[in-house]
Design a protein around this nucleic acid. Structure first.
Length: 766
DNA sequence: CAGTGAGCGAGCTTCCGCTTGACTT
């Protein structure tokens, strides 16, 4: 039996700490919270002053029995859960479940996982802070009330199984509102003029790229200006050289790691967290769910050592960054390598890449500023007030840039900076070419998973442990979807002045191409509008910040937690009742107009099986016709013409071999149906609205030919087929893998049956 | 794999934050 027991939240942390504490201490983990509000029902006695009803969730029973056993064997128990609201509550629940005396239970916290910090903590325990615990209870209960009272209203008024919550509903709102900004955005264009000057009459001399200080609204104005340019004389009128500095970004928090891993490595938010978890469990990095940019003294000293030996003394600059995000609780360090001398680690490709990113970011944060020199040259025209500006940037000292440069969300960076050739004030310049290119304004960008996390963090909504799950939730509910869009070609004009002549070149560019962006879905927009109409206080961007202030007051002992909940619940519950009393349901219905031939009304709305278009009504006994909207069409933006088009499918192409050929659009895109079989139409090759009878037969024959090639052997209902991953056996819609090294061509019926039986056995036994 | 839109209704769904595996393909 070991006398001393320390309980922490994470098993990986337990392992590390046990090493520091030595033989007399046993360290075990609670795996986070061990007790929560009951799963079913509200779990709160509203009338009894919001008394919570707690239970130990099923999946925690084993952990709890292990904890009970360990604590009964120990003489001294330290509870070392994290130093924040949730950690304090975990400590309190532990004390309750393990029947520990609140007055004598030793509560300790580590600010960093080092031997000194841990030994110091052990000798100075405190009591559990009930004010902090109560602020957590208030947070937990408020979230439960919001989620479990609004969601059932959605089931009644919109659709079953929907959900609403303090965090997820705001995330959806951000995406819906951004989409509407994009709908209403009006693209404008103007002409930007850039000149390539040379510094003397010799055509081979150095070139200076400069941009006109004015843009021109249309082609006519641009052309007029180029004509002036053609006749103008140019001279350098000003040279300014400004020194500047650039500083490194702070070390990673969960949110910034997710953003950079997306920008630099293309990781999804969930993927980043999964890879980071692996690195953490292997002891390669510190804890990955943190809102702090702090580095331990040990890490600061070690970084300095590494930087000085790798790059030299002048590259080192020790910095401690202040955490600026709203509502940060700073229970952990920033995310950093556990051992800073390792610039890389063994592991799979993604682990290596993410580790390197973390190493570089951490090291760079402790390096010197980069020194830059920015040069601006202004060039006058002798026949126009418009001036040209050339800018160039020279890095005088690279500093932290030697290791790491933070990326931005902007995709096209027009801001090119060139090397400036030697010029003097008053010097004449001569143009090689001057170009006016049409430039279009772009709408605000759609959110990526990572930029949504950034926005939520700015608003102080959600926590490092919930960013990734929240993003999954709003996708799982069908509120938003992560998609690519091919974009559309758009034509633009370029006017070029060369040797006194202006030529016009038409060009095309791709506009609106999207990769892995979050798009709102119809149900997300309907739910959002419903919440905005009825629960505007909850989806207000400041709601979380306001309740957080009150949680802080509870934590400081200035506000009673049950009183706070009471003040919130009164008006909130009234709103719930008022909303339930309203008769109408929210279907997102839109009237598109009348059928051009029959005059029947045409509407779109959310139906039982999704968004649907409808011609006619059930009035006076007539039967309406229905058609599902296709993917990428929204109730809010579909036009009458597009809706009418939906009713043209499925359509018959006529009979072949005395069977009908039908063309339609299904779940998996456009298809041809013939003799009960489906033949996919390829995107961009065949259009289901215009495909002909002859072409359909071609598609059918091609597919049948391909299918024949797929068959290697046939024994009654057993087929040996060629699949994506090589040959396999199929029988009664079940597929069976071949043992390694089998020659599919030589298989006999008996051998096939043996393989099938073997496969079935191993499935049952496992 | 590739529809469905008559209407009723039993029984279900749902939150946010802590933490990791145990599951399946």
């Amino acid at each position: 039996m070991i006398e001393n027991l320390v309980i922490v939240e994470s098993p990986a942390k337990a392992k590390t700490i046990e090493k520091f504490l030595g033989k007399d201490f046993r360290v075990i983990s609670s795996f986070g919270h061990i007790r929560d509000l009951v799963k079913k029902n509200l779990g709160i006695n509203i009338e009894k002053d919001f008394e919570p009803v707690y239970e130990i969730p099923k999946e925690k029973t084993k952990v709890v029995s292990d904890l009970r056993k360990a604590s009964s064997e120990a003489k001294n128990i330290w509870i070392a859960s994290d130093e924040d609201r949730e950690g304090e509550a975990i400590a309190w629940h532990l004390a309750g479940v393990l029947k520990l005396d609140l007055d004598t239970t030793k509560r300790i916290v580590f600010h960093e996982i080092t031997k000194d910090a841990i030994s110091n903590a052990i000798v100075s325990p405190r009591k559990i802070d009930m004010n902090l615990v109560n602020s957590q209870q208030a947070r937990r209960i408020l979230d439960r009330i919001v989620g479990f009272e609004i969601s059932p209203v959605l089931w009644k008024k919109v659709q079953p199984s929907l959900s609403a919550g303090r965090v997820q509903s705001v995330a959806v709102r951000l995406i819906v509102e951004r989409e509407r900004e994009i709908f209403s955005f009006k693209t404008e264009s103007s002409y930007r003029v850039t000149a390539m000057f040379r510094i003397d009459t010799n055509t081979a001399s150095a070139v200076l790229r400069a941009e006109a200080s004015k843009r021109f609204p249309d082609e006519k104005e641009a052309r007029k200006f180029l004509e002036l340019c053609s006749a103008a004389g140019y001279s350098v009128t000003g040279i300014t050289v400004k020194p500047g500095t650039r500083s490194p970004a702070p070390p990673f928090t969960t949110s910034t790691l997710q953003q950079e891993a997306y920008r630099k490595l293309g990781f999804s938010v969930a993927q980043t967290m999964a890879v980071a978890q692996k690195l953490y469990e292997a002891g390669k990095i510190t804890y990955m769910r943190t809102d702090s940019t702090n580095l331990s003294k040990l890490a600061l000293a070690k970084s300095r050592e590494v930087i000085v030996s790798e790059f030299g003394e002048k590259y080192s600059k020790t910095r401690q960054f202040k955490t600026k995000s709203k509502g940060a609780q700073e229970a952990h360090e920033a995310i950093r390598p556990a051992y800073l001398d390792n610039s890389n680690v063994p592991g799979n490709q993604n682990e290596k890449k993410l580790y390197e990113l973390i190493w570089k970011r951490t090291i760079a944060s402790q390096m010197a500023d980069a020194l830059i020199e920015k040069t601006t040259i202004s060039i006058d025209m002798n026949n126009s007030p418009v001036i040209f500006n050339a800018t160039g940037e020279v890095i005088k000292f690279d500093g932290f840039l030697k290791v790491y440069m933070e990326s931005t969300d902007q995709e096209n960076n027009d801001d090119e900076r060139d090397v400036i050739p030697p010029v003097k004030k008053g010097m004449p310049l001569y143009y090689n070419s001057i170009t006016a290119s049409q430039k279009f304004t772009s709408p605000p960008p759609r959110y990526t998973e990572a930029s949504l996390v950034k926005k939520l963090e700015e608003l102080g909504i959600g926590r490092p442990s919930t960013y990734a799950p929240t993003i999954s939730t709003i996708q799982n509910r069908g509120y938003v979807s992560r998609e690519d869009r091919p974009g559309e070609k758009r034509s633009l004009k370029i006017l070029t002045l060369e040797k006194g002549k202006i030529a016009s070149t038409p060009k095309t560019e791709l506009a609106g191409k999207e990769k892995s962006k979050l798009f709102p879905q119809d149900i997300g927009m309907i739910v959002n509008d419903f919440l905005m109409e009825n629960f505007s206080a909850i989806v207000d961007y400041n709601f979380t910040a306001e309740v957080e202030e009150q949680f802080d007051e509870i934590a400081m002992g200035k506000l009673k937690w049950t009183g706070m909940l009471h003040d919130f619940y009164g008006p909130f519950h009234k709103t719930i009742e008022n909303t339930l009393e309203k008769k109408d349901r929210k279907t997102g219905v839109r009237d598109l107009g009348k059928h051009p031939e029959t005059g029947e009304p045409i509407t779109v709305r959310m139906g039982r099986f999704g968004p649907v278009a409808q011609i006619g009504t059930t009035e006076n006994g007539s039967k309406p016709r229905f058609a599902s909207l296709s993917k990428n069409q929204l109730l809010e933006t579909i036009t009458l013409e597009e809706a009418l088009n939906l009713f043209r499918l499925p359509r018959s192409l006529g009979n072949h071999d005395s069977d009908e050929i039908v063309v339609g659009i299904g779940k998996f895109g456009p298809y041809i149906r013939f003799k009960g079989k489906f033949f996919s139409l390829k995107k961009g090759v065949d259009d289901p609205y215009t495909v002909t009878f002859e072409r359909a037969i071609e598609v059918i024959n091609e597919k049948n030919e391909d299918d024949k090639k797929k068959v290697i052997k046939e024994f009654g209902d057993i087929h040996v087929l060629n699949g994506r991953y090589g040959p396999y056996i199929t029988r009664e819609k079940q597929n069976y893998r071949l043992p390694k090294g089998t020659d599919a061509e030589k298989l006999t019926k008996e051998e096939c049956i043996t393989i099938i039986e073997k496969n079935n056995k191993s499935k049952k036994s496992s």
